[in-house]
């Protein structure tokens, strides 16, 4: 790992100032991707702005019909939170299935979505539940946030502060996990609620995407039977040593039906 200047600001404003004052600054959230990346010398920022001491970025609250999760809230906290478990159990289960216990104790929702790994779980949650990303500058709908492989709508100096999830009437998430890392080879979040009927797929393509055919079919009745024949073509899907594009295409249909069934 190349060395860097380490900053540990106490507020979002201080963090933004430290970031804009750096030659090549990067934000450090839970570090579960970034520290491994630095160790491999795949990145060499001049400055790391550690968000771990900003109390405002941590915690979960209910606001109107939404569950609002601070950007620096860990996966373990989301998985164990009483209001998340009561209002959006599919989201608690998703958080509980990320990585391993120690990763869940460090990794954060803000860090995960800012990284936008194609196989991460949270992008499916945000798009599949119709969440809104709050930053220090604006609010971004989940549909507009994830723009490509490891790409988001965030500006270089923009900091995620929270994610607001509307409480769905029904939601289910199922993934076919890589047996070593627990990353989603394919993961599907299906929901019905104030954000409409939504189906989001992660792991299968370069970036999370919605499945319009499935949403239309579920609009006529939210049941696994309604999507028996819904599938996707393998064109454009990821192919690697874990699974071919054709296999992933098949898994999308299987995980979709399991997710809808899990939603109850």
């Amino acid at each position: 790992m190349y060395n860097f200047n380490h900053h540990r600001p106490g507020s979002v404003d201080e963090a933004a100032a430290a970031l804009s004052g750096a030659d090549d600054g990067k934000l450090l959230a839970g570090g579960m991707t970034l520290i491994a990346t630095l160790k491999q010398r795949l990145a060499s920022p001049s400055d790391l702005v550690d968000l771990g001491a900003i109390a405002d970025l941590k915690g979960i609250r209910e606001d109107g019909g939404a569950i609002v999760i601070g950007a620096m809230t860990t996966h373990a906290t989301v998985a164990g939170d009483a209001s998340v478990k009561a209002k959006i159990p599919a989201l608690a289960a998703l958080a509980d299935g990320i990585g391993d216990a120690q990763v869940r104790n460090c990794g954060t929702i803000g860090g995960s979505i800012a990284n936008n790994d194609p196989a991460a779980d949270y992008p499916a949650a945000l798009v599949g539940l119709g969440a809104t990303v709050h930053t220090n500058k604006r609010e971004i709908a989940a549909d507009d946030f994830f723009t490509g492989m490891f790409e988001t709508a965030l500006a270089d100096d923009e900091i995620i502060t929270a994610v607001a999830f509307p409480v769905p009437e029904k939601a289910g998430y199922q993934k076919f996990a890589n047996p070593a890392s627990r990353y989603a080879i394919v993961g599907v979040m299906a929901s019905s609620g104030p954000a409409g009927v939504r189906v989001a797929v992660t792991g299968a393509g370069p970036c999370v995407f919605r499945l319009a055919d499935a949403e239309a079919a579920l609009g006529g009745g939210f049941s696994a039977d309604a999507v028996t024949n819904v599938g996707v073509a393998a064109d454009g899907l990821n192919s690697d040593l874990h699974a071919s594009a054709e296999y992933r295409a098949h898994l999308v249909g299987v995980m979709l039906r399991r997710a809808v069934a899990a939603a109850g």
Binding site: H6, L28, G31, M32, I35, A36, L48, D50, A76, D100, A101, Q102, V103, N105, C106, A180, S181
Partner: peptide, 21 residues
């Protein structure tokens, strides 16, 4: 951050100390 030989507790929570500054 895979094998867990480096697990310690930080503020009571288990973490992998090879992946924390």
């Amino acid at each position: 951050s895979q094998c867990g030989a480096c697990v310690v507790h930080v503020n009571g929570e288990s973490v992998k100390s090879c992946s924390m500054l």
